[in-house]
Amino acid sequence: MMRNLWNQAYETSNGIKVENAGYLKRILVPKQESTDGQVIDEHEELVLVQTGLYSYPDPEGNLITLRYVADENGFQPEGEHLPLPPA
C-alpha cells in the first residue's frame, strides 16, 4: 500500500518551482552475508520513497525541469537537459 506521508509544493517569484512527496514502502531484503561473515536472513524493511520535480528558467529563458524518484534503488533523475547514458 502506498500512503503519502507528505506533499510539498512552492514556486518563487523568479520562476523556480518545487514539488515533492514522500511515502514508506515495504521491501523484501534477500538473505545476505555481512563483511564479517554474519548471515542476515531474508527480511522485510520499510524504505522512504521520495518523488518530485524542480524547475527553473535558465539564463536564456528556457525552462529546465528535473523529475526524480529516490528509493531503494537510489536517486533516479530524469530531464531533457541531462546526458543519456551509453547504450
Rank of each mutant, 00 (worst) to 15 (best):
D36Q: 12
T12M: 08
Y10G: 04
E19H: 05
T51K: 09
L28Q: 09
N62V: 08
E60I: 08
I40C: 02
E78V: 03
W6Y: 15
E60S: 08
A9L: 14
E42A: 13
E11C: 08
E72K: 13
S13E: 15
E19R: 08
T35D: 09
P30E: 12
V18S: 00
L48E: 05
S13P: 15
D36P: 07
S34G: 06
Y68S: 01
S34L: 10
Q50K: 08
K25Q: 15
N20I: 00
E45Y: 03
Q38Y: 04
D41F: 03
L63G: 01
A87N: 04
L84K: 01
T12E: 06
D71E: 05
Q76T: 13
L46T: 07
D71R: 02
P86C: 12
P85K: 01
V49T: 14
P59M: 05
G74T: 06
Y68T: 05
L24E: 12
G22I: 03
E19Q: 02
R3N: 11
Q76E: 08
Q50H: 02
L84T: 05
H81Q: 09
L24N: 11
H43L: 03
G37D: 03
L82H: 05
H81T: 05
K31M: 08
Y68N: 03
E80I: 09
E72N: 12
Y10I: 01
N4P: 12
Y56W: 11
Q32S: 14
E33P: 09
L66K: 07
S13N: 15
E42V: 04
Q76P: 01
I40V: 13
L28W: 00
G79E: 07
Q76D: 07
S34P: 02
Q50C: 00
L48F: 02
E60H: 06
V69H: 03
K17S: 11
E80P: 14
N4V: 12
E45R: 09
A70E: 11
A70N: 09
L5D: 14
G74H: 05
T65N: 11
G79H: 03
Q76K: 13
E45N: 06
D58F: 10
L46D: 13
G15R: 10
L48S: 07
L48M: 07
G15K: 11
V49W: 09
F75W: 15
G15W: 13
K31N: 11
P59L: 01
E11P: 13
Q50D: 00
V69C: 04
R67I: 03
I40D: 02
A9H: 15
H81A: 12
N73M: 10
F75R: 03
V18I: 15
L5A: 06
V39N: 08
M2P: 05
P86S: 11
S34H: 07
A9E: 15
G22Y: 01
M1G: 15
P86H: 10
K25Y: 05
P83C: 09
V69T: 13
Y54R: 02
E45M: 06
G74L: 02
A9G: 15
Q50F: 02
Y10M: 06
L28E: 12
I40L: 02
Q50W: 02
D58T: 13
